[in-house]
């Protein structure tokens, strides 16, 4: 048995790292959102004007709402493709299941920036997609239309965050005993019916987790829209970013950051509550 003193000191030691490197910076950042900038210097006062600016100016909240819509679209696309893929992998014989899962999560081993540049060179004017379409005579000259649009953002983000949808759903499927699906077919249900009535309801926690993962990652990603979105690439992350650097309006940027964190927290909370109510 450890004596109380060494136990407490061990706890302090273990707690020190997260508090110094996570908790303190977070507190500093929340505190900053109530500060003001005067004569190019951050003044520690208490003001709500940063939050008021967010609510009053449509170039802030309007972009925020647009960004939420974009993230929702990305999450739904990931779900539409991720659920069948997870289900397909789960149905594979055990020998092939994990190698296949590995293939799906393989892109996670690659750097984010590399993937972005890859997408840009696939979709660009001199890119792979244009070369392929021209070579197969589907179009007669390369088109600029694939890159720098809202669709390009959705496509790129959906591809990049796809594994985060497949993984939780797959892990959830793994917990469904095969005896349940066997019982379902024994009782005369078709494969489709078994999926609808048995598998899908039991998979909901994974689906919800996947949706939350993808949504939050898409919301926090301000580089992809800028890199592939062109004139449509102005998302809320970019608005936050613009308050730093030469602008030096950290308090305003921090208040926008707090808004983002609150929305994410509310989302996770709401999902947690519904899943508890529905016992999923």
């Amino acid at each position: 048995m450890m004596n109380p003193v060494s136990r407490i000191s061990l706890f302090v030691l273990v707690a020190l790292v997260p508090s110094v490197f996570v908790l303190l910076p977070t507190i500093a950042f929340v505190a900053n959102s109530f500060f003001a900038v005067e004569n190019g210097q951050i003044v520690p006062t208490f003001t709500l004007s940063n939050y008021a600016a967010f609510l009053q100016q449509p170039e802030y909240w309007g972009v925020f709402v647009n960004t939420l819509g974009l993230c929702l679209q990305v999450s739904i696309i990931c779900l539409v493709f991720g659920l069948p893929v997870a289900w397909f992998i789960w149905r594979l014989p055990e020998r092939n299941r994990y190698p296949m899962l590995f293939v799906v999560i393989l892109p996670l081993f690659m750097s984010y920036v590399v993937k972005l540049f890859a997408f840009r060179s696939i979709l660009g004017l001199n890119g792979f997609l244009n070369q392929l379409l021209v070579a197969s005579h589907l179009i007669d000259k390369p088109q600029m239309a694939f890159l720098f649009s809202r669709d390009a953002i959705v496509l790129t983000q959906a591809s990049m965050f796809f594994p985060y949808m497949v993984l939780p759903i797959f892990l959830n499927l793994e917990r469904i005993p095969h005896s349940l699906t066997q019982a379902s077919s024994d009782l005369g249900a078709s494969a489709g019916m078994t999926f609808r009535e048995v598998v899908l309801p039991l998979t909901m926690p994974g689906v919800v987790a996947g949706l939350v993962f993808v949504f939050i990652m898409s919301l926090g990603d301000y580089i992809t829209p800028q890199m592939v979105g062109g004139m449509m690439g102005h998302t809320f992350g970019r608005v936050v970013w613009s308050q730093f650097g030469v602008t030096f309006n950290w308090p305003l940027g921090a208040s926008f950051g707090v808004v983002l964190v609150l929305v994410c927290a509310a989302l996770v909370g709401a999902v947690g509550m519904t899943s508890r109510q529905q016992r999923i």
Partner: peptide, 9 residues
């Protein structure tokens, strides 16, 4: 500069 950033947004 703050106004410029707002204008840019």
């Amino acid at each position: 500069t703050e106004y410029r950033t707002q204008l840019w947004n």
